[in-house]
Nucleic acid binder design. Structure first.
Length: 191
DNA sequence: AGTATGATTGCCT
DNA sequence: GGCAATCATACTG
């Protein structure tokens, strides 16, 4: 059984940074992760800040699993749980460079522009067909797949990671826990 | 039981 | 740039 290529027991900001450039597939559909955000229980902006609730239970579960929540009553957002069980940390997948299952993503998103398929957390959820049924699922088993390199390998060029303040939060807004690939055209916003 | 609030997106001016 | 869409969760009474 292949182990995950990332140690999810590390701090969420370290995991969020390490995930940039790695490939995430859900049911064979996905691409390179180009933008993430870290959250932690000791972080006023995190869903886990006020302790466990039915919604955020997955964040307090074992690391290396998915935490999926409904955003603004409309979108599904995908997080990867970090730290140890009971801690309440995770990484939000904010944007990806589509590399696999482009046509399915186009169909689910209802548009053709590759640049807009996964440029934002709600868009990632829709493009990868993620919903509440994925909450708490292990990342080392189907339908999830985490790879060190793109399926259609383009070479081992170094990934330059930018950091900045997180988007759309009101508390702890100064913390530089948003990470992204320098020069990527698939970010939800520029850094 | 009623109300306020988003880790967002897309369409409008 | 402004704002509506839409609903589970959290908070108030």
């Amino acid at each position: 059984m292949a182990a995950l290529i990332i140690d999810f027991s590390a701090d969420s900001d370290a995991v969020a940074r390490a995930l940039i450039g790695m490939t995430l597939l859900v049911g064979g559909v996905g691409g390179r992760i180009v933008e993430t955000e870290a959250y932690d229980q000791l972080d006023a902006a995190s869903h886990s800040f006020s302790g466990p609730t039915p919604r955020n239970a997955a964040m307090f579960g074992p690391p290396g699993r998915a935490y999926v929540y409904r955003s603004y009553g409309i979108h599904w957002c995908l997080n990867l749980v970090c730290r140890e069980e009971g801690h309440g940390a995770g990484v939000l997948i904010r944007a990806m460079e589509p590399t696999a299952g482009l046509e399915q993503m186009r169909a689910l998103r209802g548009l053709t522009d590759v640049r807009l398929l996964c440029a934002g957390p709600g868009r990632v959820g829709q493009a990868l067909n993620v919903d509440a049924s994925f909450n708490g699922m292990r990342l080392d088993r189907a339908p999830f797949k985490l790879l060190a390199q793109p399926a259609a390998n383009a070479g081992a060029e170094t990934v330059v990671v930018l950091e900045g303040p997180r988007i759309g939060i009101s508390k702890a807004a100064d913390l530089p826990w948003r990470f992204g690939e320098a020069g990527s055209r698939f970010l939800s916003r520029r850094f």
